[in-house]
Computed example of a mutant assay.
Amino acid sequence: MTAPEAEHGGIIRPQSWRLELPAKTKLINANQNLHFRRKAEMVKVIRNAAWTMARHSDIPALQRAHVYFVIHPDTSIKRRDPGNWAPSAKAAVDGLVDAGILPDDNKDHLLGPDPRIGTPVKGSQLVLWITDLDQMHADHIALLNPPGVLA
């Protein structure tokens, strides 16, 4: 057993990639009351930013992935509920699909996106962590989600 396997009780950590959207990209918060056109514009910007970053990364095409998103809120935001940025994460995941990283963002190909909170940065930033589920044993995937979901 190699050192990383020994450290994790024999579990081999699957390959993961970090995909940062540019800092200061305007993000959508579920608590915002946006006009549908303004929201559509913001979705397009986030989706295109994720597409661009994915196309210029070393992330291969995956069949199944776990994605969690880390929101680095603006330094001026005091209440930090990471789940509120799910609309931004959805748009970014759609950008991954557009870039060919995932064939689709349905339950057969995607687990998540799950929210996390990161350290505040000026202007906010969204970071996606993408893990190849095809490198994980089904028993380990089961620990990440409720029974019957993407085994």
Rank of each mutant, 00 (worst) to 15 (best):
residue 8 H to Q: 13
residue 150 L to Q: 13
residue 52 T to C: 07
residue 121 V to F: 03
residue 116 R to W: 03
residue 60 P to R: 10
residue 3 A to Q: 13
residue 117 I to S: 11
residue 52 T to V: 10
residue 25 T to W: 00
residue 23 A to R: 15
residue 144 L to W: 03
residue 117 I to G: 15
residue 9 G to R: 12
residue 47 R to M: 10
residue 138 A to Y: 05
residue 58 D to F: 06
residue 9 G to F: 13
residue 56 H to F: 11
residue 117 I to N: 08
residue 127 V to W: 04
residue 2 T to R: 11
residue 12 I to S: 15
residue 57 S to V: 08
residue 1 M to D: 06
residue 75 T to R: 14
residue 120 P to S: 12
residue 37 R to A: 11
residue 113 P to L: 05
residue 11 I to E: 13
residue 16 S to G: 13
residue 90 K to E: 03
residue 39 K to H: 00
residue 16 S to A: 15
residue 93 V to Q: 03
residue 113 P to W: 02
residue 96 L to K: 02
residue 145 N to E: 11
residue 136 M to W: 10
residue 101 I to Q: 01
residue 94 D to M: 00
residue 107 K to I: 05
residue 34 L to Y: 00
residue 136 M to F: 08
residue 121 V to H: 01
residue 114 D to K: 02
residue 107 K to N: 05
residue 135 Q to V: 09
residue 119 T to V: 06
residue 28 I to C: 02
residue 145 N to G: 07
residue 17 W to P: 06
residue 66 H to G: 14
residue 114 D to T: 12
residue 94 D to F: 01
residue 119 T to F: 00
residue 82 P to N: 03
residue 114 D to R: 02
residue 144 L to M: 15
residue 123 G to V: 10
residue 56 H to Y: 09
residue 151 A to S: 13
residue 120 P to A: 11
residue 11 I to S: 08
residue 124 S to V: 00
residue 122 K to P: 05
residue 1 M to P: 11
residue 114 D to E: 08
residue 23 A to V: 15
residue 73 P to K: 01
residue 133 L to Y: 08
residue 124 S to Q: 14
residue 143 L to R: 14
residue 58 D to I: 09
residue 46 I to S: 01
residue 140 H to V: 06
residue 48 N to E: 15
residue 128 L to W: 02
residue 62 L to V: 12
residue 42 M to S: 01
residue 56 H to S: 13
residue 122 K to N: 09
residue 97 V to F: 01
residue 60 P to L: 10
residue 117 I to E: 10
residue 60 P to S: 12
residue 33 N to I: 07
residue 148 G to I: 09
residue 128 L to A: 02
residue 75 T to G: 08
residue 55 R to H: 09
residue 151 A to F: 07
residue 72 H to G: 10
residue 53 M to F: 05
residue 30 A to L: 11
residue 7 E to I: 13
residue 67 V to K: 02
residue 148 G to M: 09
residue 113 P to T: 01
residue 150 L to P: 06
residue 128 L to K: 07
residue 112 G to I: 04
residue 30 A to H: 05
residue 70 V to M: 14
residue 150 L to V: 12
residue 68 Y to W: 14
residue 5 E to W: 06
residue 25 T to S: 13
residue 32 Q to P: 04
residue 105 D to V: 00
residue 19 L to R: 07
residue 89 A to N: 04
residue 53 M to D: 06
residue 136 M to G: 05
residue 37 R to F: 08
residue 2 T to Q: 11
residue 4 P to H: 07
residue 130 I to Q: 05
residue 23 A to I: 14
residue 143 L to D: 12
